[in-house]
Write a protein that binds this DNA or RNA. Structure first.
Lengths: 205, 205
DNA sequence: GTCTATAGAGGGATAGAC
DNA sequence: GTCTATCCCTCTATAGAC
């Protein structure tokens, strides 16, 4: 979701390599989602892909670089689904709710990955710490702008601050992920988010 | 917070051992809070306590048992602060908010521990998985009863379901922990929780 | 109760053959 | 691009001395 300065290699000349890289990143997402970054091993990722551990390290210099690749891929995925260039409005918030629903039903591994990595990356020494600090700041400002627009349109409930509504919506999303991962049949993340938003908005979602 | 069936050893006869166990559990809380259970090592915990790793394993048969002890200690801590026998009411919710504030300012390590462990324990194979499933179910029913009492007293906003309010409050608490751990100076967890509750309640907190 | 020593598994990274 | 082999590290757990 954060615009990153990706140093992409030319696609045409290294088609096979690009495909392998992609396979490795997909496997990395799965393994890190289940075991976290620190406990997830590149050996296991290599096994999923079907190559040796040394073979994997031909594509990524080390484990940290692989993590960076996984986070970048994750951002690409989210960006495909959300229109970042559209003006901030109630539709931004609607899009966010749709994204949550989409993630839960179509790419649950992404939810797992975010939940586990964001938690372990709260430690300042974690290689993804800075990434998550920047990412949360960015999403917060993105959503705050949306709630600000809603307020400007006279559709935000009295006494609600756009910044607090944005922070609350992010917290609600993250927190619901834990409960959903613990009990996927009972928890409906998108519905709970709508329940959160209803008292804050003067319009229906 | 969950009432557990603790098998305590008699205190008088093994005073020194009980003290050591306690030291180990405190150190374990810190190390698991920073590195998680899977990456946190009993070696490091032993180092913090100032004994050898084999010395530590005299007090806990293995790493899983140490984790169980840490979780039990954590529950004891929380239970000291919340009155579980009081009838469910708006005061239950007030107590919960106070607990959040207390944790953030007095025992930040506990917040870290919960955040990291609950995330990695979403994996069904994690040794604390069942613990967290039970714990969340318990807290949910506890808080739902409180919101139900609030509704019975005519103090819950129209259209709000007690169960959804309870689940939302838990999610909000968990999610705010991530943001707070990433940026402790900017985020005020208790205040944001109050912001969440304000539109749901007909009374002031 | 605590130690040293060690077994045995698994981790990341590198060297060098093909 | 991928492999095998290897180095060196860290980890949990156990055995046995004190």
């Amino acid at each position: 979701m954060i615009p990153t300065v990706a140093t992409r290699k030319p696609r045409g000349a290294y088609a096979k390599t690009a495909g392998r890289r992609r396979e490795i990143l997909e496997a990395g997402m799965d393994v890190f989602a289940t075991n976290g970054f620190r406990s997830g091993s590149i050996r296991e990722i290599a096994e999923v892909v079907g190559i040796s551990q040394a073979g994997l390290l031909h594509h990524f210099a080390n484990k940290n670089e692989l993590l960076a690749g996984v986070l970048e891929l994750r951002d690409d995925r989210a960006t495909e689904y959300v229109d970042l260039s559209a003006p901030a409005s109630i539709d931004t918030i609607r899009g966010f709710v749709r994204l949550i629903d989409y993630n839960a039903h179509q790419v649950p591994g992404l939810v797992e990955l975010h939940c586990v990595l964001s938690a372990e990356a709260t430690s300042p020494e974690h290689p993804a710490h800075e990434y998550f600090v920047r990412r949360y700041a960015w999403v917060l400002s993105f959503l705050t702008a949306a709630f600000q627009a809603v307020q400007d349109a006279g559709q935000l409930a009295a006494g609600v601050s756009p910044g607090s509504a944005a922070r609350g919506m992010i917290a609600m999303s993250d927190g619901l992920q834990v409960q959903w991962l613990l009990d996927r049949d009972t928890v409906d993340m998108a519905q709970e988010i709508r329940n959160y938003l209803r008292p804050l908005l003067a319009v229906e979602l």
